[in-house]
Design a protein around this nucleic acid. Structure first.
Lengths: 141, 141
DNA sequence: TTAATTGATACTATATTAATATCAATTAAA
DNA sequence: TTTAATTGATATTAATATAGTATCAATTAA
């Protein structure tokens, strides 16, 4: 069971790179090569993140992508929702034979609870936090 | 992001049916029709669960599948591991450029922590617990 | 002997994820 | 003003995972 797909994984790495150089434009090319992300794949992810107002871009020579926002306002939950769809434990709650006809879906309660836990845990993990962790880790050998 | 696949979802339903009639043999056919699970698909799931000693079977006429174990010893975590592989948040920790060369994977810490949370939450959800919840829910209208 | 069952396994279909490719539009700089 | 470096938009392909179906042999109660 894989919780984060490549999409999300790459997006996090790209955002870390942009957050580290906040306010400057970085080209997709440089982000791709420095973080070992397939170039064209990354471009699509960056464009998606622009559509969700996580980053901004400038076209043309010397153009690129830039982080304007506070990296603490970008959480892994948001990225999961963008690239993997809203966290949803199972389709159980929509299946009549357990949830409607019978008692009600007994999984439903547990599922909703765990869904909440997972979501709120990932909520705590922001790009800002990861960046600080990274800085901290870089100091220690 | 879908946490439980059909595999696991169906497996849980089948186990609930078997746990409700603990000690008796139920045919794959009856479990399938009563719980709206594709027959051949279910058979494969049941065989897989036998291989993992979650249930037992008897061949031939009047044969079927039976739960011998205490349903409280079967957790959703186990089922996820069987049908969806071990919970694993991302491959990040194996990627050199962040985790080896650089500071160490900063995601790693968060990832491990969340992995633990998710796993232990699902650990609490056993077939026994679900069955009791189901019984409880059946009473209330 | 037979019909109902599981065991084992092969096959197909569909969906999701991952990756690549192409061309137009923009823009800083030569 | 031309050009090369870039993003915007979108089409295409490849790989993998998930879901579902089919078949036939072995077993066993009736």
């Amino acid at each position: 069971m894989k919780v984060l797909t490549k999409n999300t994984d790459y997006a996090i790495r790209a955002l870390l790179a942009l957050a580290a150089k906040k306010g400057r434009y970085l080209s997709a090319k440089s982000i791709a090569t420095e973080n070992d992300i397939p170039y064209q794949f990354l471009r699509r992810l960056l464009q998606e993140m622009i559509r969700h107002d996580l980053i901004v871009s400038k076209e043309g020579v010397q153009g690129g992508f830039m982080m304007e926002k506070d990296p603490d306002t970008i959480s892994v939950t948001q990225l999961i929702e963008i690239f993997q769809g809203k966290v949803q434990v199972s389709e159980c709650m929509f299946r009549k034979q357990i949830c409607g006809n019978r008692a009600r879906c007994v999984l439903r309660h547990e599922i909703m609870r765990i869904e909440q836990v997972v979501q709120s845990e990932f909520e705590k993990v922001t790009i800002g936090k990861l960046l600080r962790d990274l800085a901290g880790a870089a100091l220690k050998p």
